[in-house]
Amino acid sequence: MKLLTHNMLTSKCLKGVSVGYPLGINATEVTTSVVDFDPEFISRLIPKLEWHALKQASDIIGEKGYLPEALIADYENNEEFLKKVHHALLEIEVVSGNLVCPETGRSFPINNGIPNMLLNEDEV
């Protein structure tokens, strides 16, 4: 699971959960790979991200403080910054571990890089 995917997921569908965002990450195996960098895609993507969630996830999974606290201005023209965001979003991958609902603590296992978001029949 890449951090871009993590940025898009909530556990709001669980009973009694009001926000469910961002999900916590417990990673037991993390890999990094090289993915072709497309600055246009990243700058189109940035306004759609929840920055605080990405920053938080990158601090836990990657290097602490790798991304700044707040989104910088004029990021479209800052290639170095776009490369960093690209790395955090697409190159870091959680291979195994858990995603955790911040309100109920319900955890969702990640195996082979694929999160399992299935609920049990008593939860639906």
């Binding site: 699971m1 871009l4 995917t5 909530t10 556990s11 993915v35 759609k48 978001m117 609920l119």
Partner: peptide, 20 residues
């Protein structure tokens, strides 16, 4: 390079962020 992710998920129960 253009593969993001696949998830095991029941389509009738959405885990996607509301404003996605």
């Amino acid at each position: 390079a253009r593969y993001i992710d696949v998830l095991v998920n029941d389509f009738s129960i959405s885990f996607w962020r509301e404003n996605l």
